[in-house]
């Protein structure tokens, strides 16, 4: 394994210190237990808290700041954070209007956030993100939360900033989740620092279709395809899931898993754009880049969100975080 680390055990904590310093205008990092919170807090506003295993950066810590998250709880690499992190984060950022947990649908994340919510004194609610359509809708533990999380967190962040109350935030979050579908393809596995070697081996002409974001295998190993074929394939699943009417306004997000160059991500964006334009969609907003990553995995996912005017306005609202910034 070749990585910039001193030891797997110190990677996360040292990295968080660097993150805090590099973005000291926006965030603070607290330790024991670890959480990242925004510097400028606001009372009377629903506090948004997310979190999950590390290794997906900039998700979630990179989304802490004005117009998005109030706090993020980073677990060890690919390991859900623990309830004490969430409780401390809630204590630090609760502005008196309740806490909304935004949770990607993984057993570990769900159960740890659930324990935190049970132990929390004040009012809280949870929005579960499960946008990965590579799994069937009736999958026994539900679908995974993947790159659509960025969209959910951005839109909810704007809503909370504008004074939506806890119930309205939860309802909006669930609406965004329902309107959002993603699917990803891996060209390589990734190397978890504590493991020291790639989680799985792929042949030189193989790709993994329908992957999550933890370096685990996907639903299917396939032969290497052209970018057009890959886009046709995964866009097809999303299209089938959302079945948007012609003229529907959408947000198209191409998310890199970490090691895929922007040159390729923009190519994928162009192909996906063409795919959906041919199907009559009105692609109003876009997001291309590495937002929900899997360490050093090569690959990418497509996410489509059906937008209504409210969601569009909230998407466009000012945001000032390490990884997403506009309008301020």
């Amino acid at each position: 394994m070749k990585k910039f680390i001193d030891s797997p055990g110190t990677l996360l904590d040292t990295s968080l210190q660097g993150f805090a310093k590099a973005h000291a205008d926006i965030v603070e990092v607290r330790t024991q237990p670890n959480f990242v919170l925004r510097k400028q807090r606001k009372t009377g506003k629903v506090a948004l808290i997310s979190g999950g295993g590390s290794g997906h950066e900039p998700l979630h810590a990179g989304f802490v700041g004005y117009g998005m998250l109030d706090a993020a709880c980073p677990g060890q690499v690919f390991t859900s954070p623990t309830p004490d992190q969430m409780l401390e984060a809630a204590a630090a950022v609760d502005g008196g209007a309740g806490v909304l947990f935004i949770v990607k649908n993984y057993a570990g994340d769900v159960m740890n956030f659930e324990m935190a919510a049970e132990m929390l004194d004040g009012p809280s609610a949870t929005v579960l993100v499960d946008d990965d359509v590579s799994l069937p809708k009736d999958h026994p533990i539900g679908r995974r939360g993947v790159a659509g999380t960025t969209i959910v967190e951005k839109i909810l962040g704007a809503a909370a900033e504008q004074g939506y109350d806890l119930a309205a935030c939860k309802a909006l979050g669930e609406r965004v989740v329902r309107a959002t579908a993603s699917m990803g393809v891996a060209l390589t596995s990734c190397t978890v620092p504590a493991l020291g070697h790639p989680t799985f081996e792929l042949g030189a002409d193989e790709i993994e279709i329908g992957v999550g974001i933890h370096g685990e295998r996907g639903r299917e190993t396939g032969k290497l395809l052209s970018a057009s074929e890959i886009v046709g394939r995964i866009a097809g699943h999303i299209q089938q899931e959302l079945n948007p009417p012609s003229g529907q306004a959408v947000l198209l997000h191409v998310n890199g898993f970490g090691a895929t160059p922007l040159l390729e991500l923009h190519l994928v964006y162009e192909l996906a754009w063409q795919y959906w334009r041919e199907r009559g969609l009105n692609i109003q907003r876009s997001l291309v880049g590495n937002f929900t990553t899997s360490l050093d995995m090569a690959g990418c996912s497509l996410t489509l969100s059906l937008l209504d005017d409210e969601m569009l306005g909230l998407w466009d609202a000012p945001v000032n975080t390490a990884a997403l910034r506009w309008g301020c």
């Binding site: 295993g53 390991t79 859900s80 623990t82 309830p83 570990g108 324990m115």
Partner: peptide
């Protein structure tokens, strides 16, 4: 263990 483990097994063993 709740505060130390994380993941699925952390919450399950804590429980």
């Amino acid at each position: 263990v709740m505060a130390a483990i994380g993941g699925a097994s952390g919450s399950l063993y804590a429980t």
